Simulated assay, not measured.
Amino acid sequence: MRLSLLLATLLIVPAAHAQSEPAADAAALQQRLQAIDADPSTAGAAAYERLQARQALASLAAARSNQRASALQIAQWRVETAEIAARTERSRRELAELERQRSQLLVEASRQDAVRARQEAERLRIQAQIQAEEAARLRLAAEEEGAARQQAETVLQGVASGEAAKLRAARQREAELRRREAELLRSLED
């Protein structure tokens, strides 16, 4: 029994409240609609939905008492639709702005990657140039050393040839001296 009374009270109070406060409900809906208009982030958004909400509020104000509940429900739906559409439009704009910022960040990252790649290429080019210069210097030093070695060998060969020629000459002279000595000894014996 108490439960029945409580349920009846709960059902009657909102209905009585809805009938006693139609002007307050309309004013609250009007304030919600004005809040959408006043918010700079949603002011230009959902124009069609806001127009429909205004028309629904105008219909609510002109509605007879027996049509007031359904007009109020329609006005509430239209205001909610305008709010949702305005938030959706604001979210789309924010998303577009975030996408633009993301694109800018990607372009900046690509630019920085290109700068780093150019710097790395320049570093590698300089390193390769240094290595090429070092290789050329070593090659030149090896060529100079080879030329010096060849010259030393030529000198040594020249010295060796000269010494060999002197040795041959000395042997020939010695042989000549022996031959003369042998001739002298023969002539003394004869």
Rank of each mutant, 00 (worst) to 15 (best):
R2I: 14
R2W: 14
L3Y: 08
L5N: 11
L6N: 10
L7Y: 06
A8L: 11
P14I: 01
H17E: 08
S20L: 15
S20C: 13
E21C: 10
A23C: 03
A24Y: 15
A26Q: 05
A27W: 03
Q30S: 11
Q30R: 03
Q31P: 10
Q31I: 06
R32H: 06
A43L: 07
A47C: 04
Y48W: 13
E49C: 01
L51Y: 10
A56R: 00
A58G: 03
A58Q: 09
S59N: 15
L60W: 15
L60E: 15
A61F: 15
R64K: 12
R64W: 15
S65P: 15
N66F: 15
Q67C: 04
Q67S: 07
S70T: 07
A71N: 11
L72H: 12
Q73G: 05
Q73Y: 06
A75G: 03
A75V: 09
R78M: 04
E80L: 04
T81M: 12
T81H: 13
A82T: 05
A82N: 05
A82M: 09
E83K: 00
A86K: 02
A86R: 01
R87T: 07
T88S: 08
R90A: 09
R90H: 06
S91E: 14
S91C: 11
S91T: 07
R93E: 11
A96E: 10
L98R: 04
E99I: 00
S103N: 13
Q104A: 09
Q104K: 05
L105G: 06
L105F: 02
L106D: 09
V107Q: 05
E108P: 08
S110N: 09
S110V: 07
R111N: 13
D113S: 02
D113Q: 03
D113N: 02
A117I: 08
Q119D: 13
Q119E: 14
E122M: 00
E122G: 00
L124Q: 01
R125K: 03
R125V: 09
I126E: 14
I126L: 12
I126C: 07
Q129A: 10
Q129L: 09
I130P: 05
Q131E: 15
Q131P: 07
Q131F: 01
A132L: 12
A135N: 13
A135F: 10
R137G: 08
L138Y: 07
R139M: 13
R139V: 06
A142T: 10
E144S: 07
G146R: 00
G146K: 00
R149C: 01
Q150G: 05
Q151N: 08
Q151E: 14
A152V: 08
E153Y: 01
V155E: 14
V155S: 05
V155N: 05
G158R: 01
G158A: 06
V159P: 11
A160F: 10
A160L: 12
S161M: 14
E163D: 10
E163Q: 07
E163N: 04
A164D: 07
K166R: 11
K166G: 00
K166Q: 06
R168A: 01
R168S: 03
R171Q: 11
Q172V: 05
R173A: 09
R173I: 07
E174K: 12
A175S: 10
R178Y: 02
R180S: 06
E181A: 02
E183Y: 04
L184W: 11
L185N: 13
R186C: 10
S187E: 14
E189W: 01
E189F: 00
